[in-house]
């Protein structure tokens, strides 16, 4: 066990070192692909706070990403922050994060009336609701045409890349910190048995609401960075099904409930994705492939690939 942790540390350190070097030596395509992989891993790590730690599978992680991207871009485009000078982008991102956290706080009330499959579907309903509002209010949001970012506010790929990498490390740290905290104990207690957790005096709803808001914050920052780097957003870019589905696939693929899981799963899934699209030039739509991956995981190993491997190894060790 100790040596396994040592290997993980070395691997993690190497991965960080390599990712720091990529913008210096890589092609623009590689930097872009790695940047997006990083954003997806942030979402997967945030997803796992709910899906893995709390045991509430959510299909709505992309909602926080998309809403923050829209709020940031629309706020900057409205010229209301112009008086702030160069600080306007930072302030816009912070306002977007605050708005998204508030939205997560509000949605906690209907969402946590449910659990299990119903919760998962309701989180997806949240994404659809937001999409419809954005599409139906074209005067405010650009509707189906999307919105362009004023070139003044573009974030260069290199800056966005390092911001994304920082967010990834912060998200990994957040998951690690939650797992070892008092809140993490409460979350684990709820996952194992809500009844038992309520009998020891935990306020279940407050714990769940806090966890939802916490998980929304890094996703929102990722959305703000994405919006300013992309230069253009519409509902499919900011609130597409992939933003809500890939985090789940990644966390389950790598092993839900452990910090390394979403990171490993994210690298694997994005590796498959980029290979299929950029190198094999597959014409079948990406969503069909994600769907088939999801279906296969569900049939073969709903606990996640890494977890199955770990369990097999433990069983083997025990039987020796």
């Amino acid at each position: 066990m100790g040596s396994a942790r040592g290997v993980m540390r070395v691997a993690g350190g190497l991965a960080v070192a390599v990712s720091l070097l990529i913008p210096l030596v890589g092609t623009r395509d590689l930097v872009t692909a790695t940047f997006f992989t990083g954003l997806y891993i942030v979402l997967a790590l945030n997803y796992d706070i709910l899906g893995g730690f709390l045991g509430y599978m959510t299909l709505g992680q992309g909602a926080f990403f998309g809403v923050a991207a829209y709020v940031t871009v629309l706020l900057l485009n409205s010229a209301r922050l112009d008086a702030l000078g160069r600080a306007d982008m930072l302030v816009a991102a912070l306002v977007a994060v605050a708005a998204t956290a508030l939205m997560a706080f509000g949605f906690a009330y209907p969402l946590f009336r449910l659990s299990g499959a119903y919760f998962a579907i309701a989180t997806f309903a949240m994404v659809l609701l937001i999409r419809h509002f954005i599409l139906n209010l074209p005067d405010l949001t650009g509707g189906s045409y999307g919105v362009y970012v004023n070139p003044r506010h573009y974030l260069s790929l290199t800056v966005a890349y390092y911001l994304g990498l920082g967010l990834l490390l912060a998200s990994a740290w957040l998951n690690h910190a939650i797992a070892g905290s008092r809140l993490g104990l409460a979350v684990a207690a709820i996952r194992e048995s809500e009844l038992a957790a309520s009998t020891i005096g935990l306020d279940l709803f407050r714990v769940k609401r806090r966890v939802l808001v916490l998980s929304a914050i890094p996703s929102a920052l990722a959305g703000a960075v994405f919006g300013l780097q992309a230069g253009y957003i519409d509902v499919d870019a900011a609130l597409g099904v992939d933003k809500t589905l890939l985090p789940v696939i990644m966390a389950l693929m790598g092993g839900s409930g452990r910090v390394a899981g979403p990171v490993v799963g994210g690298l694997v899934v994005r590796g498959i994705d980029v290979t299929l699209k950029n190198y094999l030039h597959l014409t079948v739509p990406a969503l069909a492939i994600y769907g088939l991956i999801l279906l296969t995981i569900g049939l073969l190993m709903p606990e996640g690939v890494l977890n199955v491997a770990v369990r097999r190894r433990r069983l083997a060790a025990r039987s020796v």
Binding site: M57, L287, A288, G291, L295, P302
Partner: peptide, 15 residues
């Protein structure tokens, strides 16, 4: 399992 499978089926078929 059933959400993953049926959601995956739905996405693949619709796409």
């Amino acid at each position: 399992g059933s959400i993953l499978v049926t959601f995956g089926f739905a996405l693949a078929v619709e796409a």
